[in-house]
Design a protein around this nucleic acid. Sequence first.
DNA 1: TATTTTCATGTTGTCAGACAAGCTGACCCG
DNA 2: CGGGTCAGCTTGTCTGACAACATGAAAATA
Lengths: 243, 243
Amino acid sequence: MSKLLNNLDPLPRATLSEQVAKQLASRITAGDWKPGEKLPSEAELCKALGVGRSSLREALTSLAFIGLIRVRAGGGSYVAETPSAYFTSSWLHSGTLNSEQALVEFAEARLILETELAGICAERITDAEIDELNALVEKMRDSTNRPDEFWKLDLSFHIIMGRAAKNKVLDNILIGVRDQMRDLISKSLLVQEGMEQAVVQHSRVLDALRQHNPQKAREAMRQHLQSFQRGYKVLFAGGHGED
Amino acid sequence: MSKLLNNLDPLPRATLSEQVAKQLASRITAGDWKPGEKLPSEAELCKALGVGRSSLREALTSLAFIGLIRVRAGGGSYVAETPSAYFTSSWLHSGTLNSEQALVEFAEARLILETELAGICAERITDAEIDELNALVEKMRDSTNRPDEFWKLDLSFHIIMGRAAKNKVLDNILIGVRDQMRDLISKSLLVQEGMEQAVVQHSRVLDALRQHNPQKAREAMRQHLQSFQRGYKVLFAGGHGED
DNA sequence: TATTTTCATGTTGTCAGACAAGCTGACCCG
DNA sequence: CGGGTCAGCTTGTCTGACAACATGAAAATA
């Protein structure tokens, strides 16, 4: 039931309004329209894009909802001055992760976030949560020959840690960042002895958490992620030209 | 032209589809429909909410765009199993920042992010960027009697630092977090000698950046933010019942 | 002339209807 | 019992219509 059904991209049969939304979004982030500038009217955009008003409006309301644009009834649509809100959604939808630079930045962000999270987690984790993590590590030990199974356990470990840190804000941010790197994470485990290493490293992190030692937890997590980074760098250097 | 036009909430003249989107979103996050569950059909929702299909669909496509729900053509709408993407937008639209707990979490997240950002910034900042920051600190020195002016400079300082760190991912995350705390940040400067302190602390951070000393930069930034936290804690303890 | 009022025009908000495309389950046939 | 067919429901998209709103120009007023 779960052979290799894991990473099948749900074939991009995107709806029209979604395509329009993405296109407009990338146009805006690319700078075709700058913050504060007025977009063409709906009628013009419809004609230019060759879509009906419904589709266009669904796209515009989506962009307005995430705060990329601002629409004034009767007055037109404007690129928001502070498109701060956009950061998550833009990652999600416009595939920023193809450039190596973006990848490096994501990895760095994850390293920082996950390291510090481990630190505060060490201060706040409960015994029950420690038991959960322990069970996971045990399972991981038995799954080093099943990559797809293993990577789920790996992810669970980090998710439980996120909960155990008792900071939903950080947890959510980290979930978003991880989500962006999902494919990469699962692939990097396939590199050489990625999984054996990961087991050892996770159990080191767990030890530090068990001792409620933030400094040690941070250090263990940092080592884990750095070796992960080495893993995917090999991957990236090796398989360059897809899409 | 800019007297007290700063923090005027743009009077919630919300569009119908926006109201619907928010209502459905809060229903979902509240657990009325759980991840994986099927929402009622568009026709039913229209009748229940008393809105036309356009408005409802604009709401649904917005929620689909941010990944809260998944819509299958001909098959219905379903709450997404992994609503991770939602975190930003949920902050933005449903005012999560009223509870003290959320506030503490945001402050902690900001402390971590901004501290680490200062660290990598120290490694990568250019001379031109240092000059920019220096000019800002000078201006701050002369603005300790104009809070609204001062807080803009304060914000600019952090924004330039964000750029100088050369990591857009972290920068964007931090922008989002700061955006959530915007009101709080500006208010906390009014507390006692908030601004005089801030000038000193910013210049300490700047010194560390000028020396390209990550450790020192982190420490200076941590002190800055911790004193900021003390500031707003006073504020929060003092003025409890607004709204 | 200077200021205010009015208003025509363009733009967005919302509704309703129509049809295509897609999904689902029941029914029927081999 | 297995498999194909089809009716009915659901979403995707287009079109047309009208209300609400915004804006700038023309007109009325001081």
